[in-house]
Design a protein around this nucleic acid. Structure first.
Lengths: 216, 216
DNA sequence: CTTATGTTAGTAAATACTAACTAACTTAGG
DNA sequence: CCTAAGTTAGTTAGTATTTACTAACATAAG
């Protein structure tokens, strides 16, 4: 009890690159929970276990930190997508194509709900990178689906629908379920209790039977 | 130049109820644009053309003002829905049922984009009335659709799908389009340039051909 | 005159960001 | 191997603004 110091215990020293990543990670959670304006740099520093000044050593402004996060998340999501889309690209098993995509989207947002919240917050708050962020996710998927549908129409397997509208509808159908789950988890609002797999199956079947050419 | 007063010109006197409504209206716009945390009471006062203190004469706290707005918007939306759902309730023209609902939803959000933004912000920011707000809109519609689908399955007109999932999918399909339009208006993200009517037709047809029993 | 509607001028706390200092790790020279 | 110098990661203690909210006063309307 010799020292009456009320200051913080010095944080364990970390390599700059590690600390930076840790700050990004902590800030991601907070921004995703409370949005840009609802998150303070003090809060971020506290959670990271460092003093506020350290934040500004790594990022010139709060905005820059936010941008770094979006940048990071964008790349992460892009990679995830690429790897998945590649493998499902050439096969012409419609059920598998739509089904695995639906399951994948549902699972991604179930595992990492911060992603969807960040996406929504950034769109609402009009962040400069919001567009890019959106492009890298929903839009890329949608374009992929659009091309597939276009091809299958050409094949004569699908009805002659508007591929853009159909693609966005499919993605929208799925993402809306994901949204409800993310936003209203553990409330009475989300009253559908199905596993991602079951949900994906139902959604795919619903969509498929709409777009597949009818037997006559 | 007789008076060097730097103060504001006194606002024109209004009846309390009118001023209250005006504040709600101005604040709605700002909250919808910038969210709760991104909007200051000073900003609201300035836009309303009164001093900040007036805001607090009518609403004890900023939160209370926000709640009043959600309350107002909830009622407004509920009425709009009721009137529409009543008229489309008993008829069994599936195309008209889904089509008019789709058109209605798209038009509502096109005419008043603040509504969707408020809804999304309140959900993300976890406002206490967010649930209720959501219930009064998407959920009420969804339940209506769910009942309709259930009935038509019983009639033998629809396939035996999960009514909850189908209803939410239909609503989700539509609301996702509305969201993209509201959030990314005038950007390259929203690349589908269709009138609400055209969009509603395509969405309905897409959904219908999925849920209607196939001819054999 | 009384009451309702307005303003002014604050306050305490919070917020993004900075300047100046300190301790820990790394490494070069003896 | 040992130590001194340099570098990097940390802290403290601020600052100027902003923010939600209040008390006390002013004036138009009936």
């Amino acid at each position: 009890m010799a020292s009456t110091s009320t200051g913080r215990a010095p944080a364990t020293r970390m390599a700059a690159v590690d600390r930076r990543q840790q700050i990004v990670s902590v800030a991601s959670e907070l921004f995703s929970k409370n949005g840009f304006n609802g998150t303070t740099t003090k809060e971020i520093a506290d959670r990271a276990g460092v003093s506020e000044a350290i934040i500004f050593r790594h990022f010139p402004t709060k905005q820059a930190l936010y941008s770094a996060i979006i940048d990071f998340k964008t790349k992460q999501s892009s990679e995830r997508l690429q790897s998945h889309l590649k493998e499902a690209a050439s096969r012409k098993d419609d059920l598998a194509f739509f089904g695995s995509l639906a399951l994948d989207l549902l699972e991604v947002h179930k595992k990492d709900p911060t992603f969807m919240r960040l996406l929504m917050f950034s769109a609402l708050e009009g962040h400069e990178l919001a567009e890019m962020f959106y492009q890298s996710t929903a839009r890329e998927v949608r374009n992929h689906v659009r091309r597939y549908i276009k091809q299958r129409i050409a094949d004569g397997a699908f009805q002659n629908v508007d591929p853009s509208v159909a693609a966005r509808s499919f993605v929208g159908m799925i993402l809306y379920h994901a949204q409800v789950r993310v936003l209203y988890v553990d409330t009475s609002v989300d009253d559908i209790r199905l596993s991602s797999r079951q949900m994906a199956e139902r959604l795919t079947s619903l969509f498929m039977n709409g777009i597949c050419r009818r037997r006559r």
